[in-house]
């Protein structure tokens, strides 16, 4: 009986280590990435987070073969990243992409397509489709030195998608974009996911990451600090809840005092802070029994930002 071949992970990173030598005599060794391991699942959007110097860009450069790890391995769809064919199914958008000033976006995309041995009407159709999708069709035949930052970012994305890659890797794609540009890029990333593509990107813009990523990894000082789905990371820090109750603030306060909970007056009545060790059901029942309307129950969750900051601080202290 034939068994189905297990799907190959788009990206597997194991024990990745990279250090650089710095200083006048290159005598000082700085570890940029120290023992990083994670893998991507097909069709997910994965965010790589971390403060400046965390090792995000170094990791992405090792994945794409621009720099070589001291130790460890990177496999893209099962192929070691050093192999040329490993890069056949990826698209890469570097941070602040630089282009050849003398080329138009169309000429650049033709060259990019040529590297993938794409040519003729199929390539032209693909190029025009990308220009339309990314909203730069009007500037396709202008030299790229005349492009704004947002247009350069779109041209960069167009070249990353020229081969219809299965894994799209982007380094800080949202930085420097205005809110509309960010929203459009978020939609493009979600569109890629909808088409079954896997997306890996690094970012500082946590609200966007929280909104579109399935999973995130937080790096600090070259080490993996947290990894998991956005939901699980945020839930890990669940710390009680807030209850908005309508009605007489004096009655709300009396019940809260009985339950030894903090409370504050609000426009509609009172806001009761349910501590982590309190039983939420008991608190709710107490107010319902007193026939006070429950207006809102909100869980206290960590924000991605608080996790990010906490991990960065922790890494700093450890160092």
């Amino acid at each position: 009986m034939k068994t189905a071949k297990p799907a190959q992970s788009p990206l597997e990173i194991r024990d990745l280590v990279k250090s650089f030598r710095t200083g006048f005599l290159q005598s000082k060794k700085v570890t940029a990435v120290g023992g990083l391991s994670f893998s991507l699942e097909e069709g997910e959007i994965f965010g790589l987070l971390g403060p400046n110097g965390a090792g995000k860009t170094t990791t992405l450069k090792m994945i794409t073969g621009l720099i070589f790890p001291d130790k460890g391995e990177v496999k893209i769809f099962g192929h070691p990243s050093a192999e040329v064919k490993a890069r056949a199914r990826i698209g890469f958008l570097p941070e602040n992409p630089w282009f050849y000033d003398y080329l138009t976006a169309r000429e650049f995309l033709r060259m990019a397509g040529g590297i993938f041995s794409l040519r003729g009407p199929a390539l032209e159709k693909r190029i025009n489709g990308l220009f339309d999708q990314l909203g730069i069709a009007h500037a396709a035949d202008l030299p790229m030195r005349k492009y704004s930052k947002g247009m350069l970012q779109r041209a960069g994305l167009a070249q990353a998608l020229i081969n219809d890659p299965d894994l799209v890797i982007m380094d800080e794609p949202l930085s420097g974009l205005d809110p509309i540009g960010r929203r459009e890029l978020r939609e493009i990333i979600l569109g890629l996911k909808a088409r079954g593509k896997t997306v890996l990107f690094s970012s500082h813009i946590l609200s966007d990451v929280e909104e579109i990523c399935d999973r995130v990894a937080i790096l600090a000082r070259g080490r993996l600090r947290e990894i998991g789905s956005v939901e699980s990371l945020l839930d890990m820090g669940t710390n009680g809840a807030e209850l908005e109750v309508g009605g007489d603030p004096e009655r709300i306060g009396a019940i809260a005092d009985t339950l030894a909970l903090e409370w504050v007056r609000s426009m509609t009545g009172g806001r009761v802070i349910i501590s982590a060790d309190a039983d939420t059901a008991t608190v709710l029942r107490a107010f319902l029994d007193a026939e006070l309307p429950i207006l809102e129950l909100k869980r206290h969750r960590r924000s991605l930002e608080s996790i990010f900051v906490a991990q960065s601080e922790k890494a700093k202290k450890e160092a």
């Binding site: 621009l66 890469f92 993938f116």
Partner: peptide, 14 residues
């Protein structure tokens, strides 16, 4: 220096 190489060598070219 201009980092244009990032757009080239990340494609399947040796």
């Amino acid at each position: 220096d201009r980092k244009t190489i990032y757009l080239i060598l990340t494609k399947p070219v040796g």
